[in-house]
Design a protein around this nucleic acid. Structure first.
Lengths: 214, 214
DNA sequence: CGGGTGCTTGACTAGCATCAAATGTAGTGG
DNA sequence: CCACTACATTTGATGCTAGTCAAGCACCCG
């Protein structure tokens, strides 16, 4: 809502000043290997990030040491925008990943619609609430696969990259339940699994998959 | 994060122009009775709202007709800020309620920090994800009661106003489970229930309640 | 070869949903 | 005043789903 206003009122923050006309020099992006930390809970929040390639997991640790993954961020998605100036969660690369930071105190002006980023993340969080609360384990996994498939609109086969444990912590299930759900989806001929870690997914029946997530 | 920037860059939208200096005339607020609809899914989003008194439930209906309550909004809280210009959910008054709308196309300028509202709602949605995913039914109900208690910092006895069914749809449980959890909390001498509909809560042991929600 | 890691499968159990019924309160009409 | 209905809440009995514990498999690497 109020969409026209929010676009007009793009919040401008200052990005790194490498002197390039656009203020976004190519070399400013950060390369990460699998499981490398981007930021941790309690750190001072200095920047927001956009994923250029690869994927990132955003998670929290509960008092009991349990990990809960709030979101996975793929290419083009933004993360690191928080209410306070102290990180409330952790961000890690899932695989080889490239991200672009936007900091607050530099020279070049980079216009970023922070409100749009916040609202997009809010919509995602609300959708996830519905998926987790109302659905059975099988439907949650189906919704997850569907979400991953949406990120690869061209291919019907793709690498989900995250481990079963990542998926479990994302969906609020256990590793065993996630594995069992994947087998059920295989037996139903909705998808195939391949690769040494069974992380290559080939969607056989997208319609059936979508039908399950409703 | 980037807090100083976001405060400086308050998005200004145009509010109703009643000619008052502040642009916020007293008579613009809307009075609602219990269960009155504020807006519905599919409607054009014209305004955002702030609760002046009472409480509001924001919910969605799944394809199967199941209701899921995304949030309860109490005094001072904002709702109705969405990504697109079409409502994705429903808003209803829970009890006698007074709300103040802020529309986009009027005369007087009302400065509202939309980004801050969006980020606050995002933080709430993320916290709710953690509560619902990681916790048992009893802990969820404890977290809910705690949330309500936070809204009444002065009194140790207060009216939660929503029905068991509201609470169930908010926490992703059934009415029966919610009732059983309330009885458990009574038996543990953590709270008392009173009133004809058992919606008057008196907190007996706030520390124990807080301890349960961790 | 042995050990480590990640995935899968099986047996059993705990917790919540489901179905059903009882209680309590308010309102209506005779 | 009482009988009756309507509604919200509570309680009980039972079944199913996902968690827990345990084992086995596939792959990789030293």
């Amino acid at each position: 809502m109020l969409q026209n206003q929010t676009i007009v009122n793009q919040t401008t923050i200052r990005g790194p000043g490498y002197g390039s006309p656009a203020g976004m020099a190519k070399d400013q992006s950060i390369q990460l290997k699998a499981d490398e930390t981007i930021y941790s809970e309690g750190e001072h929040a200095l920047a927001i990030y956009q994923v250029e390639a690869g994927a990132v997991r955003i998670y929290r640790l509960t008092a009991s040491g349990q990990r809960y993954i709030l979101s996975f961020c793929g290419k083009g998605e933004w993360f690191g925008l928080e209410t306070g100036n102290v990180r409330t969660d952790f961000a890690e690369a899932i695989c080889d990943t490239s991200i672009r930071p936007f900091r607050a105190n530099r020279d070049a002006i980079v216009p970023i619609d922070l409100l749009n980023i916040a609202l997009t993340n809010l919509a995602k969080a609300q959708h996830k609430q519905l998926v987790i609360t109302e659905q059975s384990a099988l439907k949650r996994v189906a919704a997850f696969v569907n979400e991953m498939a949406d990120r690869h609109p061209d291919d019907c086969e793709f690498d989900i990259m995250m481990s079963r444990s990542d998926i479990a912590d994302y969906l609020g299930l256990t590793v065993e339940t996630v594995a069992r759900c994947f087998t059920k989806l295989r037996r139903k001929r909705i998808l195939c699994l391949d690769g040494k870690l069974q992380r290559l997914v080939r969607i056989l029946d997208r319609d059936a998959l979508i039908a399950m997530t409703i």
